[in-house]
């Protein structure tokens, strides 16, 4: 598997390695070790999926987005509105949420992907901001700033109700995350995924090679939007509540920080950054939110100074490190 055998080298990238089982083993262990924190755990798992959606759009697709909450919130409201109007079965709700968010991604992508750099970043932000205003003001449909409250979420597979302790929510989120992750892993290792990386590195050259840059980016953006939508639906279904802040700037910004903390464009960045960020936030905010902001802020500054490329980037610089950014 050297330059002499490029096909073999590419195939080897796709092969599973044993460390890839670690996040899943950790998630299963956490289920038994921390029964009191499963509600938080379910949110962490849903956020990892949300982080993966940013990794696909930004890390692999090179699409500068600060408005991913548009899709997260669309998914959350889709699942929430369905549950509030008598369609409470979680699985169809999840699929509907993913499709609605993906459709919005394809539609807004038609505009956003024509831009680049700062203009693209601002355009993604504006799409999310418009939806947030709409959700905030259309209170007859969404409940406005008070949020959508009369959701009646059904049982998972018709058997397991979402309970107070979050056991169902946790396992449900874990299975959904695993399925979506398998899809994303296959996608980024596929020729389609390789061409996305090529476009990120040099769009002009990929155009010259005959790759349909715009169309492929649009597809990637829509898939990423769909994943964010599923993640939003997981949040809505497990908490039984949706508010306009699910479309807000914080929702877009924090997840980006979490992903960059773990390492972007490496597939596993979200699995490290999201739990680290959310557990630390949960613990430190208990003491005083000022502590939390101070320590996360200091951590970010030090990381840019000493550990560029996130924690996985740090690991990759050790000689044995194998999780290279692609």
């Amino acid at each position: 598997m050297s330059a002499a055998d490029p096909v073999g080298a590419l195939a080897a990238r796709h092969r599973w390695r044993w460390p890839e089982a670690l996040p899943w083993l950790a998630a299963i262990a956490a289920f038994f070790l921390f029964p009191g924190y499963l509600a938080l755990g379910a949110q962490i798992l849903a956020s990892i999926l949300y982080g993966l959606s940013i990794d696909l759009a930004l890390g692999y697709g090179g699409i500068v987005t600060l408005g991913q909450a548009a899709f997260f919130g669309t998914g959350a409201y889709t699942a929430g509105l369905l549950a509030a109007h008598g369609f409470g079965a979680p699985e169809p709700g999840l699929i509907a949420a993913g499709l609605a968010a993906a459709a919005l991604g394809a539609l807004s992508g038609l505009a956003v992907l024509r831009l680049s750099g700062l203009a693209q970043l601002m355009a993604t932000l504006m799409v999310a901001a418009m939806l947030q205003s709409a959700a905030d003001k259309a209170s007859t449909i969404t409940g406005g700033a008070d949020g959508l409250q009369n959701m009646a979420v059904g049982k998972v597979l018709g058997l397991f109700a979402f309970g107070l302790y979050g056991r169902t929510a946790y396992l449900y989120a874990l299975v959904v995350l695993f399925v979506c992750f398998l899809g994303m892993r296959a996608l980024v290792h596929s020729p389609f995924g390789r061409s996305l990386v090529g476009m990120r590195e040099n769009a002009a050259r990929m155009t010259a090679l005959g790759a349909p840059v715009f169309a492929r980016r649009l597809i990637a953006y829509a898939i990423a939007a769909g994943m964010a939508g599923v993640s939003g639906a997981l949040y809505a279904q497990s908490t039984g509540f949706v508010a306009p802040d699910s479309l807000g700037f914080d929702r877009s910004g924090n997840i980006l920080v979490m992903l960059l903390l773990g390492g972007i464009g490496r597939l596993y960045g979200a699995f490290i950054g999201v739990p680290l960020f959310m557990v630390a936030q949960d613990r430190l905010s208990d003491l005083d939110p000022a502590y939390w902001y101070f320590w996360i802020g200091l951590g970010l500054v030090l990381m840019v100074r000493f550990a560029r490329g996130g924690l996985l980037g740090l690991a990759a610089r050790w000689p044995a490190g194998r999780m290279r950014r692609e």
Binding site: V257, W292, Y293, I296, L298, G299, M303, V304
Partner: peptide, 23 residues
């Protein structure tokens, strides 16, 4: 440099200033 490094560092500064102002 890398734009994502810039985003991370400056968001870090935002958080620190937020904490300082709160405190």
């Amino acid at each position: 440099g890398d734009e994502l490094d810039q985003v991370l560092l400056t968001i870090g500064l935002v958080f620190i200033s937020l904490a300082a102002a709160r405190f």
